[in-house]
Design a protein around this nucleic acid. Sequence first.
DNA 1: CCAAAAGTGTTGCAATTACACCCATGC
DNA 2: GCATGGGTGTAATTGCAACACTTTTGG
Lengths: 245, 245
Amino acid sequence: MPTKHDVERFFSRGHRQYVPHLSVDCVIFGFHDGDLKLLLLKWKNSDIWVLPGGYVRWRESLDAAAHRVLRERTGLRRLYLKQFHAFGGMDRREGDIRRLFATLGVTAPRTAWPLERVVSIGYYALVDFSKVRPKGDYLSDRCEWCPIEVRPRLAFDHDVIATTALDSLRESLDAGTLEASLLPARFTMPELQRLHEAILGRSLDRRNFQKRMLERRVVERLSLRRAGGAHRSPFLYRFAASRSR
Amino acid sequence: MPTKHDVERFFSRGHRQYVPHLSVDCVIFGFHDGDLKLLLLKWKNSDIWVLPGGYVRWRESLDAAAHRVLRERTGLRRLYLKQFHAFGGMDRREGDIRRLFATLGVTAPRTAWPLERVVSIGYYALVDFSKVRPKGDYLSDRCEWCPIEVRPRLAFDHDVIATTALDSLRESLDAGTLEASLLPARFTMPELQRLHEAILGRSLDRRNFQKRMLERRVVERLSLRRAGGAHRSPFLYRFAASRSR
DNA sequence: CCAAAAGTGTTGCAATTACACCCATGC
DNA sequence: GCATGGGTGTAATTGCAACACTTTTGG
């Protein structure tokens, strides 16, 4: 548990550990129950939700910082991670950041480094929902998956960041290897289809979808079926190691 | 002309004007003589070439900083500008930056702010070659267009930045309005085609290209022809105000 | 036996590709 | 008049979208 002293120390000493004026924010996508979800944090003693993020250490690349944030929040070391945009407006934080720290009982000194202008590098990550163990940081009391359609309003410009991330994800969807990170090793064709539909935000034709996935060797069918469902047992598939297109 | 004193002042006082650890680098594309070109700077007293770039002022968004850099180097106020990637490795500058300042006769103090870690936000710009009046900054003695295929080696990680910019440009080529920024108000169909070929790095079928451009209403034909060429006079075209696709 | 989900094949359209001929101009 | 580049049309192919029937399973 962070004490008031910890937070005050962060204000006074944090710039020795972190590059000031710079942060990474991570839009973490998961897929469960047919819905695309985001991993969000709720700040302590408030209803303020934010994207997981963090500062960049002095001897750490941007990518490494994003990986570290991801690891801290999800427990995962390897995942699909992509930088998609830098957010560098001037009025992105000033107002909110004081409120946030006020809820912790800390009045930020006027000259504190986190109150100054910050440019945030946006990353989005695709993770296997079932492998993630959400874990908040010391400023948050909740760390949860929220369906992307019905998520809480986010602080700062984090709604813009999340929306931009989804747009970026949509654009690079048909590249191929991408969805592998959002699903477990074995999955059914309808599951894969619903993932695509969740990302694209529209429904697809079942038959054409299956045909494309198989013709392009995106996935390989296993000789197993998933039993236990209410209807005909679907085949299981896995992503192909190498593909033609 | 900058004096040694100016540069020393920049080292000691620059952080009052600029956000430290942050810069913008601009990959400026122009099109002339059938070649895609980059606007590059050569540092004084050296053979070191770099991309035009600059620091970000305290009360200036990233986009505004990039626009300012573009205006300073090209004289243009309105142009196509797009942020495409943030470069945040740790070893991007340290070695080179000391050499660069050494050529100016300035030995950088160990603790100078420009020697610390810098994250650079990459922008690419598309400009009308004929309207640009290249103008170097006070650290450079040349500011020139270089064909993208035969350009000098660039310092820092600027070759990576330039290559990434071209990749990004290629991806968003067929969006449409983009090429308008690289050509004068009136142009011929072969000129437009060669621009596309220069961006894509491959040749296109003349007939199919013309068909697409006209069918999709990307361009409008004017009732003028360009005389003076050695062969049949080609029609002139302009970009259509609004297009179907 | 039937509702609901999963698997498969066919057909048509639209967009892209490939390709051949005519026209204008300067030398 | 001929070489060179500019303008136009047509056939073939490919990729995608629309669509109907059969199979399996639990209740």
